[in-house]
Design a protein around this nucleic acid. Sequence first.
DNA 1: CAGCCGCGTGAGAGCGCTCTCATGACCGTG
DNA 2: CACGGTCATGAGAGCGCTCTCACGCGGCTG
Lengths: 349, 349
Amino acid sequence: MPDPSPGARPTLEAVAARAGVSRATVSRVVNGGAGVRQPLVERVRRAVEELGYIPNHAARTLVTRRNGAVAVIIAEPEFRVFSDPFFEQQVRGISRELTAHDSQLVLLWVEGAGDYERIARYLGGGHVDGALAFSVHDDDELPSIVRRVQVPTVFGGRPGWPGATGELAVPYVDADNRGGAREAVRYLVGQGRERIAHIAGPRDQTSAMDRLAGYRDVLLDADPDLVAQGDFTEESGARAMAELLERRPGLDAVFAGNDLMASGALRVLRERGLRVPRDVALVGFDDMASVAEVTDPPLTTVRQDIEGMGRLMVRLLMRALSQDGDPGAAHSAPRSVITPTELVRRASA
Amino acid sequence: MPDPSPGARPTLEAVAARAGVSRATVSRVVNGGAGVRQPLVERVRRAVEELGYIPNHAARTLVTRRNGAVAVIIAEPEFRVFSDPFFEQQVRGISRELTAHDSQLVLLWVEGAGDYERIARYLGGGHVDGALAFSVHDDDELPSIVRRVQVPTVFGGRPGWPGATGELAVPYVDADNRGGAREAVRYLVGQGRERIAHIAGPRDQTSAMDRLAGYRDVLLDADPDLVAQGDFTEESGARAMAELLERRPGLDAVFAGNDLMASGALRVLRERGLRVPRDVALVGFDDMASVAEVTDPPLTTVRQDIEGMGRLMVRLLMRALSQDGDPGAAHSAPRSVITPTELVRRASA
DNA sequence: CAGCCGCGTGAGAGCGCTCTCATGACCGTG
DNA sequence: CACGGTCATGAGAGCGCTCTCACGCGGCTG
């Protein structure tokens, strides 16, 4: 039977028969063709072509124990997940780099706390070679889960739970939030600003805390009343600004924890008739195009290479995966990477 | 050897040995336990528990030809993909429904036109049981690809290529754009508005064209100069509004193709000193929370159940998949579904 | 009490692939 | 020209699971 059941997808066997070689040879050709003589390679290639052969993924995975897929775990505490442009860029970077590594992106959307069991089962089921996770909050269960099911995982953003940098360390990729904040504040200082306030992001996000730390690094003796609490939303930025103005009307600069809060702050500043940057200089963080470029005046802000961070996460993971098989290299967890930031000067400061 | 290589994951075999039954019985228990006597079921369950057994996905897929994964294909022509709140909601609906069906979401991000080959290979490789796609533009290659590789696919939004509703029909889920537009325009008419303009979305998106058609359904003899072209962005809405005002200064209502354009139109209206809704009534489309609720005045708009549409896509696909095996039910492509819209009255009209 | 039916269980094949190992052809060398 | 070595190829096992089928036991009927 030269064509058994025309509807059925051709197997390696079928290709081998057609090319007049063994399964092994076809397999070799399909996987790069190393060690097979040219004429044979071509004959097999032709047979593959003619039959429209596509390797069966499951069969391959079954024996190689590699499945060319990586999970991206998205925990959704509340709102702001996907629609966060930050996120989009990072996922795009991940997607691109994954493609370059011939891997697929499996999206794991965590639906509330009770859903972690499902995630654990999935991760443990060998569906994916590794995982990428974003540890948004301190109390995230994810780290302990990936540890339990032993799935190589790289985190986006420095995890914040106790001991994250010591015993329970996990590999992560993060922007140099602290350094970026320092640069921003120093810039403000360099401009002659003397009463520089800070609108901080949520306390349970390490990025926010790192930025605050950077601010304090430069302004060692900063007046505590010059720091207001926000939660990374535009609204909270506005509220914090109003608060700051009440407490310290004489402030002459604001370093906001992110662009959204900067934009909220800007709104309040203008409502109060304060000119930016003349009366109050304003610096944001993130260089979120949809915000920083469209405010009036456009925001001076700290840029991070978000897509690059996504790619980097993948690269770290891939390196860990390729070492996995090595003897002696057992459990050589990838090192974490801090990516540089860059101050983007626009009109607001 | 009771515990061969402690690091290795236990197999069915191991569980069977531990429970003192055959592989077949363990398999039955793992897959629901039908037809196995209670005491045995419990013994097996306990063994599974003790060994921490997790079924190997690849092996299972190899024999069942089902892999519990569905691809979500995202073609990215330019910007607005993830960060589109519309998109986020739809993907969330998909994710939730997929979870309910014990399936995984595999994200396929199309990286430009040349990338379709990769997508085709992936789809054809049996990695997924089916696919969900969004046919943003008319010239999309996706429909022909899924047809070629024979992967059951449900589209989000009515596809617009020639013959999409006839010979080359594909199942899709779409909102009742035309009906929603009719309702919006009728509402305006009912308010006594007499010169109702429309800001249309891009010509190559069926949703935009359907909304335009709905507008025309009501205003059969509408002045062609009362229709301006936009591209669904805020900016284009502003431009279109300016244009309309120039051509027909006397207009007393605007039905915008989406909320973003409505918001742009609103900006221009206010700049020109026109009061909304007093002088000009304004209706949008989508009920995009981040836009419609925050404009001043808040937008009267047409709401569609976006998350529901996502869920519906999955349900249609699942139905098609479960029929796939049936004899006689061959190629019973799922029917398309149009979901209702609802006019949300706020202050702008 | 013999026969039969039905249900619960086990044996074993096989899904499509990779990979090790044996085999044989061909080369160069002594 | 015989021999060992190298390299391309094929044979075959086996990855972990499902599923068909045969088997055996019990209970029911005649």
